[in-house]
């Protein structure tokens, strides 16, 4: 609780890297929220006058093969990409934290068996696993969020488990047990708040990867279905146009993707550096 209350004081002392990252993410979030008011076109609205036209007044970033406004699609795409990424990471953090807490606290065979199961999940290359799960579940938005969330959970479980194991040697944990805390209050009052710091550092980095994963899934056709406005899907659809010199349909969503991932990485790495210094 106190950690949250102390947050405003801490933000002032954050490194500039984090502040730049936060600024970028704020702008992207702003674009996502106010997308309908920032452009005159809907994300799936076709302008029958212009197909595959370059940037020009009215269509500042050009139109795609269906005559849809690229700028509008990018702004609306931010809603999907940011939303899916954050929701997926939230699921990954919650799930991983719970599992890691329980493994680390229970120890013994629960820990042994549990960790081997995690090993099994992590033995597959992440993207291959995502492809398989997405292909089996089908590509609804909820399924995408769940898939990306599940796949990203094991590293959090590992991280939290390691923290809990080292916390178990601290006197205050033994003291808490001797004071008569229940399992629940040992887990959530004493262990969790002290194990959470590394998670706060990894989670923003993970948001960046999640966006890339969503875009990659869409790129190979397992993500957001056409004509949904999602950056990966837009790049995928626009890739063919580049050959004909119509670079804008793929390049601009690519830039949006790049900037957003950069924002998350700046925040994550900045926090990490701060953590190292502490």
């Amino acid at each position: 609780m106190s950690a949250i209350l102390a947050l405003p004081r801490r933000i002032v002392r954050l490194p500039s890297m984090v502040l730049v990252g936060l600024t970028i993410l704020t702008l992207v979030a702003f674009a996502a929220v106010f997308a309908p008011w920032l452009t005159g076109w809907g994300p799936e609205e076709m302008d029958m006058m212009y197909f595959l036209e370059g940037p020009m007044p009215g269509h500042w970033l050009g139109t795609d093969a269906n005559g849809m406004d690229v700028l509008s699609r990018i702004l609306h795409g931010a809603r999907i990409d940011l939303g899916v990424a954050i929701a997926a990471v939230a699921i990954a953090v919650t799930l991983g934290t719970l599992v890691g807490l329980i493994f680390g606290y229970a120890g013994g065979w629960v820990d042994h068996v549990g960790m081997r199961v995690l090993d099994m999940f992590q033995a597959f290359p992440v993207f291959i696993l995502a492809l398989a799960v997405a292909a089996i579940l089908g590509n609804s938005m909820i399924n995408l969020i769940l898939t990306i969330g599940f796949i990203n959970a094991p590293p959090y479980a590992r991280l939290i488990r390691a923290e809990v194991l080292s916390l178990r040697n601290r006197t205050f944990v033994e003291a808490a047990e001797a004071a008569g805390n229940s399992h629940i209050s040992m887990l959530f009052r004493h262990l969790l708040p002290n194990a959470l710091t590394p998670i706060l550092v990894i989670a923003p980095l993970n948001c960046g990867w999640a966006i890339l994963m969503l875009a990659s899934l869409s790129f190979v056709g397992l993500g957001v279905p056409v004509p949904g406005a999602e950056w990966g899907a837009m790049i995928s659809a626009g890739a063919a146009d580049i050959v004909g010199g119509r670079w804008w349909t793929a390049t601009f969503p690519g830039i949006a993707l790049f900037i957003t991932v950069l924002g998350f990485n700046l925040v994550g790495e900045g926090l990490q550096e701060q953590g190292v210094k502490r």
Binding site: R170, T171, F172, A178, A179, H190
Partner: peptide, 16 residues
């Protein structure tokens, strides 16, 4: 009840 050796380490750093 028990009182521990290292008083600072015996208190949860995140609790009032």
């Amino acid at each position: 009840q028990m009182v521990c050796q290292d008083p600072l380490d015996a208190l949860n750093p995140r609790m009032s």
